[in-house]
Amino acid sequence: MSAKTIIRMVFIILIGSALGVVNKFVNPKAPGFIGYYPVISATDTAKIPEAADEGDPPYISIGEAADFFNTPGVLFVDARDEWDYNEGHIRGAVNIPFETDDETILENFMAETPKDQPLVVYCNGADCDLSLYLGRTLAAEGFTGVNIFFGGWTDWQLQELPFGKSSESESGDAANQDSGGDN
């Protein structure tokens, strides 16, 4: 192998890398530059709530939730109340508080969101069934891409995966805009 060949090999790798960067920006299926993959034990199984029923939307594990997070176009939905959401949530998630008398957020979300939008609904974790109820509601309303991540915010934090706080501006946060006009 001559020096010229080696230099050309390096160039091919550099050009390939540059094209990869271009692809990142033009291809809607391209992931972000930094991957978020939890370190998962061999037994990465979905947590399933006791109240689970047959016919519920699929329950997914933390590994599957992270896969969805890495997949462009998947929307995370936080079913907890606004206060919990503001304290910290899965990055990019929208907030649809399920335990509330005001159903406008949910109704607006359902009106604005395509029925085949891939969704990951989550809540706090083991002590919270809101993800289950919200997931069922969405599925009953005809949403076909609903997944329930029952490990929720607790498991997400344990894996130190990316999170956001309400003060940060995030894309796709429209459903979180509270029109209550308090204060």
């Binding site: 050009i15 390939g16 094209l19 990869g20 991957g35």
Partner: peptide
């Protein structure tokens, strides 16, 4: 490593393609 996986996935196929063209 998880953080490098996406960089790999973005660039490696293009090196494969360039090599194919070469």
């Amino acid at each position: 490593p998880g953080s490098l996986v996406n960089i790999f996935a973005l660039t490696l196929p293009w090196v494969e393609a360039l090599v194919g063209i070469g």
